[in-house]
């Protein structure tokens, strides 16, 4: 009888390991909507524990692909910064966590004679403000793009 009970326990255990269904973890909502913009590059700041994704609209992407010296009029850039956090599912990896800020740069028409427009939206208690918004607006469009295969797509 003991052998039969042991057998039952063993087979139950073996079958249970193949039918494991775990509870769904709390996945972060996607706070940033790219609205069809493409990723230009990713920048990690290990000192501040942040990671930023730089997006561009079609005019901004064209400027990068054609290696234009200055951004095209109508180009829009969004630098989206997240706090980095440990990846819950892989020790050995950090992942983007809560959204901290979105910096937007709009390139005006050449004829307007205006400087690039800079705007900032902070989230989740982020206190960042640029020391010089104009300098920031000049800098963001000059960040090098990452190499993606099959670009432009």
């Amino acid at each position: 009888m003991r052998v039969i009970i042991l057998f039952t326990v063993l087979l139950t255990g073996i079958s249970s390991c193949t039918s494991h269904k775990a509870a769904l973890p709390a996945i972060r909502p996607f706070a940033f909507n790219d609205s069809g913009m493409q990723v230009i590059t990713t920048i990690i700041n290990e000192k501040s524990g942040e990671v930023a994704m730089l997006y561009g609209n079609p005019a901004a992407m064209a400027g990068h692909f054609n290696q234009l010296a200055t951004p095209q009029p109508g180009a829009q850039y969004k630098l989206v910064t997240y706090r980095e956090q440990a990846n819950q599912f892989w020790f050995g990896s950090d992942i983007n966590g809560e959204l901290l800020r979105v910096e937007t740069v709009d390139m005006p028409p050449v004829t307007s004679g205006k400087a690039p427009a800079y705007s900032l939206q902070n989230y989740n208690g982020d206190q960042y403000t640029p020391a010089d918004a104009g300098e920031r607006a000049t800098f963001i469009p000059t960040i090098d793009r990452a190499w993606y295969p099959c670009d432009p797509h």
Binding site: V39, T42, V51, F91, G92
Partner: peptide, 25 residues
Amino acid sequence: RFMPEFRTWQVMSTTSRFDNTTMRV
């Protein structure tokens, strides 16, 4: 097959690995 259209998909996440020296989107 290789699908270049991923460039038009939304970003799900980005990771920085410290068990090796890679980063991913």
